[in-house]
Design a protein around this nucleic acid. Structure first.
Lengths: 339, 339
DNA sequence: TTGGAATATTAAAACGATTTAGCTATATTC
DNA sequence: GAATATAGCTAAATCGTTTTAATATTCCAA
């Protein structure tokens, strides 16, 4: 017959064996030697723990240590393939340290993200991993002030001194653009988000850099779009760019790429003949297009690994060096850029 | 100057105002009236709490109440679009109750999922939402025995009496198949996973039902594949089905569909002319194919809502009725089935 | 003037684990 | 034989809440 009592506690074991709670605690925390517990007692207590199926109460432990063994993560939207793959990798990495991960989706909304961060901190997370949204410098600074370990991922603020892990966005964008040029497209354009977020600025500036390097500074054709009504905006952005004589496009994110490809397909534009294309982030979707799409690949697993490494260092060791890591992307060339 | 002390406690407020801890607790938990705390005292305490920026310590609270206000979720793989969209909806629903969600990806591996479940229970989650993997009836039963609120989602076991929320798989599959037939395809086949999981059996049996109803029981062409080496298996599965004279296909999951479309594209097969197609679950990917793909749409948000509703009922009210919910899918017809 | 309500507040136990300081014996040293 | 180590164990505080039972004060009726 099962009682309502959920689990055996140290006390239960202590009573069962007929010793004090302290002794049981010592033994089960591998401090038996340190506290000179006799061999026989160790055996007895371990047996009892086994028999009573002892599981330490995590609430009590957390209360005592002031640690939850949970990391909080706020990202844009976990249903976005790029972020869900990051999520998966973060989960796997954290597990290696015995840590769990609590996710929140901010939808790029600053207020929402602030609430979520506050909520996570109240939840007692031991550290925070953030994909910060636009103009959230003050939010990030506020987190820094709490002293909670913090790592930004995918994005960073040049004017906020924090840990971060992100792609070498500028360089990858430059490389992609110069690759397009080298493939024989003379007028590449780009579509990016209309945001002040640094990773986006970097992706745009990489494009411009390549154009300058090619002596084409005069022909820089960028379309910036807001995230709302994405489909609508993309459609008119593409119209505009084509009217300007663009013969190839670099898409700054996977969402932009997906929407754009839809529009391009509907317009019946031929890729790569009429239009060359490079996207950010791969994904099976891009291989289903009329022709496989070239793309800039982000080493998501590595990014997650570095991120968790940094945060665990701070949590466990109390390390306080600032790590700012730029990981290298890979340009994956497929059919969409072969004129 | 900031002290290392993280946060103000009830004690700090009590000292500040010069009253007992109990009083502060009453006031801050809105039990002032019930405990006849004077108006003035309520004001003073609330002010002090505000001033000291009081945040209740969740560990202490959890230890006391035996509740964590966290729900654990074990699903196949959070980086799979279907599950990440479920994840997102679960997150949103749970938030309405002030609950957070802890995700784990089992990779359809039973042992892995068992560890994760144990880990989540140790973490003190108040309930579990599971996408159970094959042959994990005993695991599910074990969870039931702990008394933890439990809801299965997407899948269920006919021989285990649990809460679950899933699609009317059989009916949707039947409808999809009969729609294919009605569109003029005479020899539909299906590709599904080689598993004993009920949702997959249902999807297959729906197909067979439709074939029977159409008097075509004789021509039932199913290819079952294992999840490993998905791409390879799919390729040969399609070869086999085509050799059998299949002129249209129903894919039992989004992963199967994605892989299959890739193969079909590479083989240069014309859709819908040579081959009609219906998939499970939509996704922007399917719209990038040569022709938009018809698909069975699952009401993911509704499923998540029902799931969380059931589990919160058990957690908060202690309700112990068993809810077994089948939600209705929608057949979305696009070009891929228009012969 | 004594007893009983009603009001306003507090003390203390409990949740379960960790850890410091302390208490017995017995063993060792000079 | 007295002083001191040492081995083996326990008591009790602590983390921050919640909640029950108790206390103290006032007020009113009998």
């Amino acid at each position: 017959m099962k009682t309502t009592k959920t689990h055996a506690s140290l006390k239960d074991i202590a009573n069962y064996v007929g010793v004090s709670i302290s002794l049981v605690s010592f033994v089960l925390n591998d401090k038996a030697r340190q506290h000179r517990v006799s061999e026989e007692m160790v055996r007895k207590i371990k047996e009892a723990a086994e028999k009573l199926n002892y599981q330490p109460n995590i609430f009590a432990k957390s209360l005592r240590e002031g640690k939850s063994h949970v990391i909080g993560v706020v990202l844009s939207d976990i249903s976005n393939p790029f972020f869900s793959s990051i999520a998966r990798c973060l989960e796997d990495e954290a597990e290696k340290y015995g840590y769990s991960v609590l996710f929140s989706s901010s939808d790029e909304n600053r207020e929402r993200s602030e609430k979520q961060i506050a909520h996570l901190i109240n939840r007692g997370v031991d550290g925070l991993i953030l994909v910060p949204c636009e103009k959230s410098q003050s939010t990030v600074r506020a987190v820094l002030e709490t002293g909670k370990p913090l790592v930004l991922i995918d994005r960073y603020f040049p004017d906020v001194h924090t840990n971060y892990v992100c792609l070498n966005n500028r360089e990858m964008s430059r490389l992609a653009t110069s690759t397009i040029l080298a493939s024989g497209y003379s007028h590449p354009g780009t579509i990016a988000y209309d945001t002040t977020l640094q990773h986006m600025l970097d992706r745009r500036s990489g494009y411009r850099q390549a154009m300058e390097d090619a002596g084409k500074a005069a022909f820089v054709s960028e379309s910036l779009i807001r995230e709302c009504d994405l489909h609508q905006s993309i459609s008119s952005a593409i119209d505009k760019l084509l009217a300007e004589g663009v013969d190839s496009l670099l898409f700054a994110t996977n969402n932009i790429a997906t929407e754009s490809l839809m529009v391009i397909k509907n317009k019946g534009i031929n890729v790569p003949g009429e239009l060359g294309i490079i996207g950010f982030d791969g994904g099976s979707a891009f291989d289903l297009f009329q022709v496989p799409i070239s793309y800039i690949q982000q080493p998501v697993a590595l990014m997650a690994q570095k991120t968790v490494e940094i945060i665990m260092d701070e949590i466990l060791v109390g390390q306080r060096l600032t790590h700012q890591i730029e990981v290298q992307g890979t340009l994956v060339i497929k059919e969409s850029t072969k004129k």
